[in-house]
Design a protein around this nucleic acid. Sequence first.
DNA 1: ACAATTTAGTATCTACACATACCATATGCG
DNA 2: CGCATATGGTATGTGTAGATACTAAATTGT
Lengths: 143, 143
Amino acid sequence: MKAQKMAGHLIRRLNQVSTHTFAKQLQEAGFDLTPVQFAAMDAIASNPGIDQAGVAAKIAYDRATIGGVIDRLEHKAYVARSISKRDRRAREVRLTPKGQAVFDAVLPHVTALQDDILQALDDSERASFLALARKALGEGAFE
Amino acid sequence: MKAQKMAGHLIRRLNQVSTHTFAKQLQEAGFDLTPVQFAAMDAIASNPGIDQAGVAAKIAYDRATIGGVIDRLEHKAYVARSISKRDRRAREVRLTPKGQAVFDAVLPHVTALQDDILQALDDSERASFLALARKALGEGAFE
DNA sequence: ACAATTTAGTATCTACACATACCATATGCG
DNA sequence: CGCATATGGTATGTGTAGATACTAAATTGT
């Protein structure tokens, strides 16, 4: 049995390729954002004032991980945290104007690079792959 | 644009599911092995005496990462390192008898769990997905 | 033979990823 | 009201994951 043929291994390698493509393209475009940081900014951009647990739920992160991700975004001054008035435990997160500008500038690059990840597939294969991936994850589970 | 619909994000979540399935199943079966550690052992089992760079190449790891992985396997006494006689820089890696026994015992579990990762897909969908994944990675690139 | 280059491995640094434990605050319920 | 329980966030520890830099050893070119 070759581990290299197994589903888990193929998925891990796809993730490597995906991460690498993302890092390379964004770096060439002059940005300093990881895939995870981008996903967090996307969730925050769509839900201003969301709390950290909300961000974690949206993009299926561990809540312990999200703290560090948001720390780094805050350090770059892309997001701001404030204590919620409803619940003093919760930290509401918003993009700063700078963060919003970066997000707007980055978005087209990120959108464009998605096809590069599956560059070896043609359009119909890519569509099939993505449809199967969504189904495997339980369509709409994290809509 | 929702990051949650993008290829990169779907792949990241598949990898989460995959890793989680692996960890859960092996833990329930009483083993202490990560997906990466298993893949390394698989490569070593198939190529006794392979050096670390060889393992890294087989399973597409960074050579900086493999050192730590093999450290942990060595610490569990699953593998043994020895300095190559051909090349004194190289460390030849082999499974210990204990490592071989663990590998043999784990292999059927790992094989069985592969389908659980894509449990939401039926057999033909799963086959399509895996074929597309292989093609996306460049079929045979790491055979 | 020997300098220039390449390669194997390690060390360091940043960034996930998740388990567990802990603190503070909310909330449910008797 | 008062307590048990649940939840938001942080802290800690282990394990990838890859960039960069460094040492030692092998290889290449002349």
